[in-house]
C-alpha cells in the first residue's frame, strides 16, 4: 500500500532530524544533466527528501548508459527526463519533479534555472560544464553551484574530493582524469563523485557550508 505523504515525511524526520527535514522539504535543486552523475545525484536527493527537484537533459537512454547511469534496460530509447521522473516517483512519490527535456546553453540557462536555490552541474562534456558554471556564476551569484570534474578511470576512490572554490561555488572530483583519455567511466567511481555532489548539496541545505 502506498504510504501517505505524512508517513514518508515522518519516517525521514525520525532518521534525519526534524530540523533537517523541514529545510530539505522546501528546497529546490536543479540537476543539469542526468547521466552518470545527475541520475545518481537526483536519486540521493529524492531519498533524502528534497521537496523540489528540477531535472534537465535533452538525451535519450542508450545501451551505453547502463554501465553507470540509473536507468533500466527496458527504458532504452526513452527520454532520460521521462525515465528518471518515473524512477524518482517510485522512491519519493510526493517529491515535486520538474522535468525539462532541453539542451541547456547560454540562451536558456537564465530562464530555466531562475527558480532553484542550488544548481548542480552534472554534464559530461568539459566545455558544457564550463559554460554552465560561468553562466550561473555571472547571472546568479546568489545561488549555490556544485560542479563535478574528474571521475573517469578506475583510479583510487580517495582522490575524489569536494573543494569550496569560493563562497557559493563548490567542485567535486579528482580534477584531472578526463574521459577523453580513454580510461572509461565506471559506476563505482562516478557514484563516488555523485555522492560528493549530493552530500555537499544536502550540507548546504542544512546550513553547513564548508566542504
Amino acid at each position: 500500500m502506498m504510504p501517505s505523504e505524512n508517513e514518508i515525511y515522518n519516517a525521514l524526520a525520525e532518521r534525519h532530524g526534524a530540523d533537517f527535514q523541514k529545510k530539505v522539504s522546501s528546497a529546490t535543486v536543479a540537476v543539469c544533466g542526468i547521466g552518470g552523475l545527475g541520475s545518481n545525484i537526483s536519486i540521493s536527493l529524492a531519498r533524502a527528501g528534497v521537496g523540489n527537484i528540477h531535472i534537465i537533459d535533452f538525451d535519450r537512454v542508450d545501451i551505453s548508459n547502463l554501465n553507470r547511469q540509473q536507468y533500466f534496460s527496458e527504458q532504452i530509447g526513452m527520454y532520460k527526463t521521462d525515465a528518471l521522473k518515473e524512477t524518482l516517483s517510485h522512491i519519493a512519490p510526493y517529491c515535486k519533479i520538474t522535468a525539462d527535456c532541453v539542451r541547456l546553453d547560454e540562451n536558456n540557462i537564465s530562464e530555466i534555472l531562475k527558480d532553484c536555490d542550488i544548481v548542480c552541474e552534472a554534464f559530461d562534456d568539459a566545455e558544457s560544464k564550463a559554460v554552465l558554471a560561468n553562466c550561473v556564476l555571472e547571472k546568479f551569484p546568489e545561488k549555490y553551484l556544485v560542479c563535478g570534474s574528474g571521475m573517469a578511470g578506475l583510479y583510487s576512490a580517495n582522490t575524489i574530493k569536494t573543494r569550496r572554490v569560493m563562497k557559493n561555488f563548490y567542485i567535486c572530483g579528482d580534477g584531472e582524469n578526463d574521459v577523453a583519455d580513454n580510461t572509461g567511466l565506471y559506476s563505482s567511481r562516478v557514484m563516488i563523485c555523485a555522492g560528493h555532489q549530493a552530500n555537499m548539496i544536502l550540507r548546504i541545505i542544512s546550513g553547513k557550508y564548508d566542504a
Binding site: 552534472a122 570534474s149 574521459v179 567511466l185
Partner: peptide
Amino acid sequence: LEIVRFVGGG
C-alpha cells in the same frame, strides 16, 4: 585567483 579547469566525464 582561483582557476577551475573542467575535465570531461559524468
